[in-house]
Lab assay of single mutants.
Amino acid sequence: MAAGGDHGSPDSYRSPLASRYASPEMCFVFSDRYKFRTWRQLWLWLAEAEQTLGLPITDEQIQEMKSNLENIDFKMAAEEEKRLRHDVMAHVHTFGHCCPKAAGIIHLGATSCYVGDNTDLIILRNALDLLLPKLARVISRLADFAKERASLPTLGFTHFQPAQLTTVGKRCCLWIQDLCMDLQNLKRVRDDLRFRGVKGTTGTQASFLQLFEGDDHKVEQLDKMVTEKAGFKRAFIITGQTYTRKVDIEVLSVLASLGASVHKICTDIRLLANLKEMEEPFEKQQIGSSAMPYKRNPMRSERCCSLARHLMTLVMDPLQTASVQWFERTLDDSANRRICLAEAFLTADTILNTLQNISEGLVVYPKVIERRIRQELPFMATENIIMAMVKAGGSRQDCHEKIRVLSQQAASVVKQEGGDNDLIERIQVDAYFSPIHSQLDHLLDPSSFTGRASQQVQRFLEEEVYPLLKPYESVMKVKAELCL
């Protein structure tokens, strides 16, 4: 049975990233139509530049190519590739079939990587351009969430054990800070992308030097003109047959890092959902379990974690691919890159769409948070109580021993009897502590235990987050809708 299948058929496997999760716009960027249309555009740009620099290419040939950029006979191309065992030459023939007058000058002087690699770089750039505003929107939604809850005390956790208090907004800023680093890295790697350009079979530009009869300047002009037509500021000066596969490492490393950030955020949300302090959106008709109707599973956060793990592992592909590119190139890269580049971007696209949807509907339960604080705060307040007693004339050592005994009794009630923490009640009825009984409410005010959390939130948002989001103001209103 021949390899390949009808990918629109229910009898043929289709990647869930495309069929179930990723956005239509990201799927289109990695589609065959987008790819092969870009090949034709690159052939047109090459012909236009070659004509401008004096090669015998007519206006009629150029116009014929322009008129057929979208006229792609995919069936013919597939048949040609089956016959020739070469995808680029299959599309040269297919393009030439609908451009008979231009057929002889299509791909003039070029090698397969002229269309293959340059198209990949265009796709990487455009895919990054799709991700950047999506990530900015996630940051914006979380920034709104953090600002609104900047002063809401909550129990902090280290080692997932109760620690000092923080605020809900401050905790959210930990998430935002990681995503801001990801946004900066995505922008950097996007701006650092260079075009492969017009380089020939081993990167020496020998074929173009021959076409222009040894004119170095025209060869350099050709490279520059096509690079500018493709919208790049610069091209690699040095290439082998391909652009260095280190570029793929750079791009997928940034995406993998984004995956790590999203995994951490969504894990926190899942843990908070278990504590009943916070939940992701839950639709009115949504079913959490087929057997347990009360369940409210954090399905979206779980999906993000599941896909983020996949995204983090994909960076190993370009690392290994770059390491086995012998001399000017081997074909070890080809099949692998067809999979890992598309999957990385479709996965990143999915987790950003999902995280935006989550961040637009996060639900906080202040009463649950308050109750958990009441359970733990008495123990945390013991040092403040000791200091207040010393100020009232008591002995630190005597007070410490009193607190120690009462704390152990209260802990026994919590752990052995399943009761509430009654340390404060014990202190309130103990005559030894009568000098500070009137101060206990103040000493137990949760806001006095959150330090500068709310001020940190305000400063972080104003100095770091809002300036970073400013270039994306025009796209901030787009909502994230999930079908599944």
Rank of each mutant, 00 (worst) to 15 (best):
H93Q: 07
L252A: 14
N71L: 10
F28G: 02
Q221R: 12
R40Q: 04
D144H: 09
L132C: 12
S448V: 11
D144C: 09
F212H: 03
K187G: 14
I403G: 02
S257D: 13
C399V: 09
S207V: 12
S438L: 13
T38Y: 05
L484D: 09
K134V: 11
E81M: 02
R137C: 11
V315H: 02
E401Y: 11
A47L: 03
K470Y: 12
F282T: 06
L174F: 15
L165M: 00
D441F: 15
H217Y: 14
T167R: 03
L341A: 08
A392T: 04
E370Y: 13
D333M: 01
S261R: 03
V324E: 04
A291Y: 06
W39Y: 14
D11V: 13
Q164F: 06
F195N: 02
E473R: 14
D445P: 04
M292G: 02
I265Y: 12
L46S: 05
T330G: 06
N353E: 10
L406C: 07
S438M: 10
Q61D: 13
L53Y: 05
V189E: 10
P446S: 05
L443P: 00
Q458E: 14
Y365T: 13
L155V: 03
S207L: 02
H437G: 10
L179C: 11
S434L: 11
L186W: 13
E280M: 00
A235C: 12
V363T: 01
D420E: 11
D333N: 04
P24C: 15
S23K: 15
A392D: 01
A103N: 13
I386P: 01
P378N: 00
L346V: 10
S15K: 06
C180A: 14
P467A: 13
S112A: 01
A102C: 06
R372S: 03
Q51C: 05
T242A: 07
Q177G: 12
Q409M: 10
V405W: 09
G231R: 08
A110L: 03
S474W: 15
S9H: 14
F28S: 06
E81P: 08
R190K: 09
C483S: 13
R296G: 05
W326D: 02
H97L: 11
C99D: 05
W45Y: 07
G8F: 14
D349L: 04
K229D: 07
P10D: 10
A143G: 09
V247L: 14
A163S: 14
N357H: 06
A146Q: 00
N71R: 07
S9K: 11
A348P: 02
R372V: 02
A49I: 08
R141A: 13
L121I: 03
A410M: 09
D422V: 14
V457M: 07
K367W: 04
R83I: 08
R83E: 07
K147A: 14
R338L: 03
K82T: 11
D11G: 07
T239I: 11
I139W: 00
G4T: 10
Q375M: 04
V363N: 14
A230M: 01
G197W: 01
G214W: 13
I62Y: 05
D441S: 02
K82E: 08
L252G: 11
I424D: 08
Q456D: 03
H91Y: 14
L46H: 05
P100N: 12
R33V: 11
R190Q: 11
L406H: 14
L406I: 12
L258C: 08
G203N: 00
M225T: 14
A344S: 04
Q356G: 07
F74C: 13
S289T: 00
